[in-house]
Design a protein around this nucleic acid. Structure first.
Lengths: 220, 220
DNA sequence: GCCGTCAATATCGTCCTACGATTTCATCTG
DNA sequence: CAGATGAAATCGTAGGACGATATTGACGGC
């Protein structure tokens, strides 16, 4: 509906890197050498640099003069700050969604369905898809166009990538369960319950962050 | 403290455009022709395009394939959505700032001082400076590094630019007064009062948006 | 053996040119 | 005057060039 008719090289490259972070092809801290990436992606330096500049705006890569770009690696403190902001925005989304009374049940149903699928296989790829679908739906029912633009979900992907080695299957399931709780309360139009569900999800995530070993944040 | 030792052309260009929006040199809706801008700013197309790509990430300019870039122009709906998100983030900042109990009074004092100066001359330039100083201080005392990155202040600048012709001196003063109220309550460490002050400021802004003529949003 | 100096190398930042792709706009035709 | 048409403007991408800077490794002094 809102997508440009044609999509340019820059966007494709940026998407490739973003999705590469989710799939583990790129890891936080990794140095991105222009010459190598242009070869690997089959594009020119101009396009690559534009894409990197775009990603740096989202806080996904950092560019240091004459030292090039690297995938950002978040410190524990940055993760805490990020979660604080994220919770605030997701809370707003849940509140708006619950209050809107939209008949978008079908949308949220899709998220729930995906969550159920995740329970079945437990694959990390599915987990990522569930997460993506959940947030897409949530923003859709919230009906605030600014929300998806501002919410630092891509930055949160960095966090997800960093903690992946330390996350147990139980924690993943628990997190997915949190999504489901939010989806249900939003669907029911219960504003207070939805806010509580969001708070619970983030409290749980914060707890996990506090327990994580230093290596997840400083490690090399 | 956190600034790179050297600043590159791309950043300079992006800053030039951003500040040009604040000063009225660039107006929302304006088409940005690459050839003209490279001449005017004395830079290469590569650097300009990187800067535009960066700005498009912040939602300041929009790039349409083969049709170039233009300064974004917000619809009334987009402004409402923007204010909703902005209020949420500023509320968080105020809450964190008030709760931190930091002895950053000196910082907020600077903002208040600037506000006083604005009362004196009433120049629009001073108004902009006050706004900037206020938010800088607020983020500083909030102590959350993610907040300034996420908060769509640059996008709000677009809104400011669009409504400037319709804004009276009284409204500006009233808005500045709102900043002062937030600063004082945050300084006092009164969380509830600070949240209320933020809510009051945004309620006032929303009211203004509702009354504004269509021309401020659709106008050509 | 350790540390500072210095040259060689790798990489980046910026500018430039080139050319196909697409839109825009003035002109022509009926 | 509507629609087709072609020229001009502008953009998107590729790729080369060269100075600027960081990094690396060799060298020599202690």
């Amino acid at each position: 509906m809102n997508a440009p008719a044609t999509i340019g090289t820059t966007e494709k490259v940026a998407d490739a890197i973003r999705s590469g972070i989710r799939t583990g092809q790129f890891v936080p801290g990794q140095h991105l050498v222009e010459a190598e990436l242009t070869l690997r992606l089959g594009i020119s330096r101009s396009s690559l640099r534009e894409a990197l500049r775009h990603l740096s705006g989202d806080g996904i890569v950092a560019i240091h003069r004459y030292r090039g770009a690297h995938i950002n690696r978040l410190t524990r403190r940055e993760v805490r700050d990020l979660l604080e902001v994220l919770e605030q925005l997701v809370t707003l989304a849940a509140r708006l969604g619950a209050a809107s009374g939209h008949a978008n049940r079908s949308l949220m149903d899709a998220a729930l369905e995906a969550a159920r699928r995740h329970d079945a296989d437990g694959d990390h790829r599915t987990y990522i898809a569930v997460r993506q679908a959940f947030y897409d739906c949530l923003f859709e029912v919230a009906g605030n166009q600014e929300l998806p633009r501002v919410t630092p979900l891509r930055r949160a992907d960095l966090f997800r990538a960093q903690i992946r080695p330390y996350q147990t299957r139980e924690q993943q399931d628990s997190h997915t369960e949190g999504y489901r709780a939010i989806a249900q309360t939003v669907n029911a139009g219960d504003v207070e319950a939805a806010e509580a569900a969001v708070a619970a999800l983030f409290a749980q995530t914060r707890e996990m962050v506090d327990v994580l070993p230093d290596m997840a944040f400083e490690g090399d």
